[in-house]
Design a protein around this nucleic acid. Structure first.
Lengths: 357, 357
DNA sequence: GTGAAAGCGCTAACAA
DNA sequence: TTGTTAGCGCTTTCAC
């Protein structure tokens, strides 16, 4: 059953042409007479020939693979991004090399280095942090790259992200309109520029309305740390009437904790989530959430990268895409004077949560 | 800022050795005197040299990239699998080339073909269907490959999957023990062997207990088709006291529909989901679900593939990993005589659902 | 429009 | 242990 892979020479011999001609037939690089081309294609089909991408890239210089580096392959926001880019890229017969950095700068650099060893035509990256040490690597390699989602403050290259400030604004306005004044914002980490921007948006609403300063809680990047922080919260401050989560992860953490507390949503507390997944619509109550245009982000990132690969040298593009507020039922008007009754979690609840990842 | 990438020759020259020696330092293929090795490493570091993987693979024959083909990059079950494989593979400095087939046989074949053009060392594949036409391609290429999750009935090669029969058994037993006799099983498509196996497990419980035959509904692979089918269900049959979903997608569909119907879980209907994600724990009520050991599946698949890449030629392994039932609160004892009151969905509910993807 | 030949960066075989 | 040489499969001059 096993067949030694046919090379360009085998095809050339069978079709009675030179290797160069076969190459031209497949690359479309230079015109070939229709008759010959047909013979070549037939020979190739008969032998099951497919040009070796590695070899072609080695000689030709131009690769047809692009690298994607994301913080976590298990976060649906990032994988949706990968999905969108893959779809766009494969339409132009580019292949996708993925690596994840586990939200760690040096891991990111290491992963990027091995990616670069394949001489990709370009890279799309969601940095692990604002430090973005990989930037140097990328620039030294002279490789086109696009930064997505987590765009560091001082970054001036090509970038695609949500309009995070406006997202924060919309979210906060929504809660304010419902009468909420005591809101806890659940962020992952303030070390990320996109999170800081979302907070600024929220703060600008706070200022508009002469409200108390932002009440913020940093949940980190794991479910465990989130649960721990939120539990601690109950001992630190008055119970808020609403939670505003700034990541999909934070949304999950808040929901799980509320559940432990036997708080009803939205009767006791309103919850506004971030990112928009099917489960948010399927559960009860359906979650009000800020939807980021992930697919569009992926498509735009690819479009820019594609142009750069072609050699385009226009000034960098910094694209900010609008988020939308999906009003559903986890947010409701704030009953005046309401506080939530925080009960100690039952044994069973704690077990459920402990198993989370 | 841009630096032309240094080649092995540049490093050799700078270190005052031959290219072959540099190669040996990096590949560890043959021993090199410590002193020389050090000089080489320094020179490489100074030049920012990293061996070109494509070139090395071309000459050496052995690739250090593995292909992964999955049905959907947007399904968290599959991306978790990718994550697990990536983690295991990168630990042995293999890189990951991913492609998605959109649950389509011919798409799968096309994607696989371009993957093979990179001459990967091996492939992990979750077939789009039981037809698995890609199998021929893989065998002709003589490439080691492991089939994961959707293992066709007649497939005899290396495979890793859940013990689907037992999963069905556990799920059905759980519902039966709670007194449920009128259960609707929500599957994606009976054309998939893993789904059929899960059904067999359920049926065996039905037989054990002399119950009515399996009540099954095929939801397809999109949220829309699932919603449509489920809506139709209400017109076709008596309302069940429990739903048993056989995919994470089906779980979502059932939940969303129940919500439209204003049915309370578990008071009106019990819901048993498939796959186990954070959101299932965070929502209210937390979902009882069958958990598949995704990470373990990924690790095992990699382990087998790795051995095959090394040249191992033991008889094929067919690994079946046990699933576990995570008892939470969406399943409850069946109140005798209960039926659910199916109301027409409100306008708002329909809108929410229509936006689903 | 096509063929012949050189060579991309690397590793393997053979010498030394 | 190290250097030298050939050549992986392809694309790209340079002739014709």
């Amino acid at each position: 059953m096993k067949v030694p892979p046919a090379s360009i020479k085998d095809v050339a011999k069978r079709a009675g042409v030179s290797a160069g001609t076969v190459s031209n037939v497949f690359s479309g690089n230079r015109p070939v007479k229709p008759g010959l081309a047909k013979r070549v294609r037939e020979a190739a089909a008969a032998l099951g020939y497919e040009p070796d991408r590695a070899a072609s890239q080695l000689r030709g210089g131009k690769g047809r693979v692009v690298g994607i580096v994301i913080p976590e392959l298990s976060n649906p926001f990032f994988t949706s991004l990968v999905a969108a880019i893959e779809t766009a890229a494969r339409a132009e017969s580019f292949d996708i090399l993925v690596a994840s950095s586990s939200d760690d700068d040096s891991e990111e650099a290491a992963r990027l280095r091995t990616l670069l060893a394949w001489k990709p035509a370009g890279v799309v990256i969601v940095p692990a942090s604002d430090e973005f040490p990989s930037r140097g690597l990328l620039e030294k390699a002279g490789l086109p790259f696009v930064v997505v989602d987590r765009v560091p403050q001082d970054f001036t290259g090509d970038a695609v992200s949500s309009d995070n400030f406006d997202a924060g604004l919309q979210a906060a306005r929504h809660l304010f309109e419902l009468g909420h004044r005591d809101i806890v914002v659940a962020a992952s980490s303030m070390r990320l520029q996109n999170i800081r921007e979302r907070c600024s948006g929220i703060e600008s609403v706070l200022r508009e309305t002469d409200s108390a300063p932002l009440s913020l809680i940093e949940l980190g990047f794991s479910f465990e740390s989130a649960a721990a922080r939120l539990e601690q919260l109950a001992t630190e401050r008055r119970r808020p009437t609403a939670f505003l989560a700034l990541t999909n992860f934070g949304t999950l953490g808040v929901l799980a904790t509320l559940q432990q507390w036997n708080a009803r949503v939205p009767d006791d507390v309103s919850v506004l989530g971030f990112d928009d997944y099917s489960w948010m619509r399927a559960v009860s109550p359906p979650l009000t959430a800020i939807r980021q245009p992930v697919e569009e982000m992926g498509r735009r990132a690819w479009r820019i990268l594609r142009r750069r690969i072609e050699g385009d040298s226009e000034p960098p593009e910094g694209i900010r895409l609008a988020c939308t507020l999906e009003r559903r039922r986890s947010t409701a008007t704030c009953p005046p004077g309401t506080t939530i009754d925080i009960k100690r979690p039952s044994r069973r609840d704690r077990d459920d949560l402990a198993k989370s990842n």
